[in-house]
Design a protein around this nucleic acid. Structure first.
Length: 280
DNA sequence: ATGGTGGTCCTACCA
C-alpha cells in the first residue's frame, strides 16, 4: 500500500497569487498570510531580482523556506513555505531566460513529499495571430512545451500540484462573455485547446472547478482598466490550481479571495486557496 | 470608444 500523502487527520493549505510586484505589495501579502494562513504561497510577477526579494518579511511570519526564479523588472515566481522545501528547479521555456517557472518539493509533516510547479505563462500581447504578434506565438509555443514536458517527464505522476497564472480562461464561464472573447487573447480556441491538452495529458484535476462547476461564472482577475470593475464584473479565470489524481481524495476546500481585489492598491489578480485534508 | 490603468525604471515596454 502506498504511503499517505499527509499524516492522518492533518491538512495542508496552498495558495497562488499573481502579486504584480511583491515589493510594492508586501503589505498586502502580509495581510493575506496573517488572515488566511496558507502553508505554501506561490507568487507570480514578483518583478524583482533575487537580492531585492523581501525575504525578511516572510521569515518574520514563519515562512522560512523560499524558492525563487527571479529577474529584474519583469515576470518572476516565488514559492514561500512554512514547510521545508527541497529539489528546487527553475525550468526555461522556448529557449528564453524568462523567469516563469519554479518547482519544489514540499515536505508535509509526517507525510511524503509533494511536488509543486509554480507557473507564470506569457500573457501573449494584444493580437491573437501568431503571424503578426510574436508574443502570441511565444505563448502558444510555451503552452506546447508545457504539454510535451508534462508528458515526457510525467510531471503529474505521484503527489503533484500545478498552480499559477496560466493566462488562459479555458471554459465558457471563465470569462464574462464567451462570444465576445473568442478572439481576445486568453480565451481563443488556440490557447484553450493547448491548455486542455496539458490538463488532459497529466491528467490533472482542475481543483477550482471541482468545487464550483460550470455554468457558474468564476473569475480570478479583473482589469485595472475598468474603473467600475465590481459593477461591470468583466473578469476572467486566469489563475489555476491543478492536482494529480492521487490527491483528489484529499481535496477538502477551495476559496477565491475576491475581497483582495478591493484592498488598497490591489493586484489585478486575487489569491486562490486550496485545502488538502487526510481523513483516512 | 482602438481608449482605459498600473507595474518597472527613465524611456519604453509590459500586463
Amino acid at each position: 500500500m502506498r504511503a499517505l500523502a499527509l499524516k492522518q487527520g492533518s491538512a495542508m493549505r496552498i495558495a497562488t497569487w499573481n502579486i504584480n510586484s511583491v515589493r510594492l505589495r508586501i503589505g498586502l501579502v502580509e495581510r493575506f498570510l496573517e488572515s488566511h494562513s496558507p502553508d505554501v504561497l506561490c507568487l507570480q510577477e514578483i518583478k524583482c531580482r533575487e537580492a531585492e526579494f523581501p525575504s525578511a518579511a516572510f521569515r518574520k511570519l514563519g515562512y522560512h523556506h523560499i524558492a525563487l526564479n527571479a529577474q529584474k523588472g519583469y515576470h518572476g515566481v516565488a514559492t514561500i513555505s512554512r514547510l521545508p522545501l527541497s529539489a528546487i528547479h527553475a525550468r526555461s521555456f522556448c529557449e528564453k531566460d524568462d523567469a516563469r517557472h519554479v518547482s519544489t518539493q514540499v515536505m508535509a509533516p509526517s507525510g511524503s513529499p509533494f511536488t509543486i510547479h509554480n507557473y507564470y505563462v506569457p500573457a501573449g500581447g494584444d493580437v491573437a495571430d501568431r503571424e503578426v504578434n510574436p508574443k502570441f506565438a511565444h505563448k502558444l509555443d510555451f503552452l506546447d512545451e508545457m504539454a510535451s514536458w508534462s508528458k515526457a517527464d510525467r510531471i503529474a505522476d505521484g503527489d503533484s500540484i500545478l498552480v499559477g497564472d496560466l493566462n488562459v480562461a479555458p471554459l465558457q464561464n471563465d470569462v464574462w462573455s464567451h462570444k465576445a472573447l473568442l478572439s481576445v487573447v486568453s480565451h481563443t480556441p488556440a490557447e484553450v485547446e493547448r491548455l486542455q491538452a496539458i490538463l488532459g495529458a497529466g491528467p490533472w484535476l482542475d481543483a477550482i472547478r471541482h468545487f464550483r462547476p460550470e455554468p457558474e461564472r468564476l473569475f480570478t482577475w479583473w482589469s485595472y482598466r475598468s474603473p467600475n470593475w465590481q459593477a461591470a464584473d468583466k473578469g476572467r479565470r486566469l489563475d489555476h490550481v491543478w492536482l494529480s489524481r492521487s490527491l483528489q481524495p484529499l481535496l477538502a476546500k477551495m476559496e477565491i479571495v475576491k475581497d483582495a481585489r478591493s484592498w488598497e492598491r490591489p493586484s489585478d489578480h486575487v489569491p486562490v486557496i486550496v485545502d488538502l485534508t487526510q481523513t483516512s
